[in-house]
Design a binder for these strands. Structure first.
Length: 110
DNA sequence: CAAGTGACAATAA
DNA sequence: TTTATTGCCACTT
């Protein structure tokens, strides 16, 4: 396999960043990608979460689209489950599939 | 080796 | 304003 180790470094940074998201807050793929220094890998941020090698430690449910939207077949049990998890932590929802990024965006103070 | 795919985002129409 | 397309970059086939 001789695959570039940078991939693991990139993935590791994504996990580190996502794990640092406080409860009641959410981050977007583009924001995370930019925070780790690779704004062009926004897509791969989601890819890293899909890989999710550490279920239970990586709050992937706190990571949403730039608009705060959650894809349907994305979460473990469905967008509804994810919405419930976010509401449980205090995240405000504008719609059934959109979170209030204006109030829950992370990192705060951008 | 080349082409296709994908938990996104930004820009164009 | 919403919808459609392109760009990104690594992985899969």
């Amino acid at each position: 396999m001789a695959q570039p180790q940078e991939r693991e470094g990139f993935f590791a940074r994504v996990y580190e960043t996502v794990e640092q998201i406080p409860e009641g807050f959410v981050a977007t793929y583009g924001q995370i990608a930019k925070l780790i220094g690779e704004p062009r890998r926004a897509r791969y941020v989601g890819y890293a979460l899909h890989a999710n090698p550490r279920p239970g430690e990586i709050p992937c449910h706190r990571v949403v689209f730039a608009d705060g939207r959650i894809c349907e077949g994305f979460a473990f049990g469905g967008a509804e489950v994810q919405r419930a998890l976010l509401e449980e932590e205090g995240v405000v929802f504008r719609d059934d599939t959109h979170v209030d990024l204006d109030a829950c965006r992370w990192p705060a103070g951008l």
